[in-house]
Amino acid sequence: MLVADTFKALGDPVRLQMIQRLSQSTQYTVGSLSAGLGLTRQGARKHLQLLADAELVSLQPRGRQTKVTLDATTLAHAKRFITELELQWDQRLLALKDFVENDVPTKQTNT
């Protein structure tokens, strides 16, 4: 699964809301998860199928209901992408701080 697919699947307010709910409880069904989101049952299914295709959630039939749980591995990959960007900015901001406080260039040149 590419991290790009993860972000694409997450790039929607309804699906983000679903993921937030799922991160707080493992007891959700399709019905309880989509409650209060202004969705038809069909609409909720569509969003959940997209999340399932992106391997962000697992759908498990339980009698007449479908249980929904979060797939933490995929989220961890997306998180890693963000973490790396954060580390890169930390590095840059430290270089800015060094330069301003010491008035000397601290960045090694690349040539």
Binding site: V3, A4, F7, L16, L87, Q88
Partner: peptide
């Protein structure tokens, strides 16, 4: 980040991890 097209994010992911 969430509104970027998939291919751009993928390129960015590669660039940034490489950069780090």
């Amino acid at each position: 980040f969430a509104s970027l097209p998939a291919d751009i994010i993928e390129a960015s992911f590669k660039q940034n991890s490489g950069g780090w």
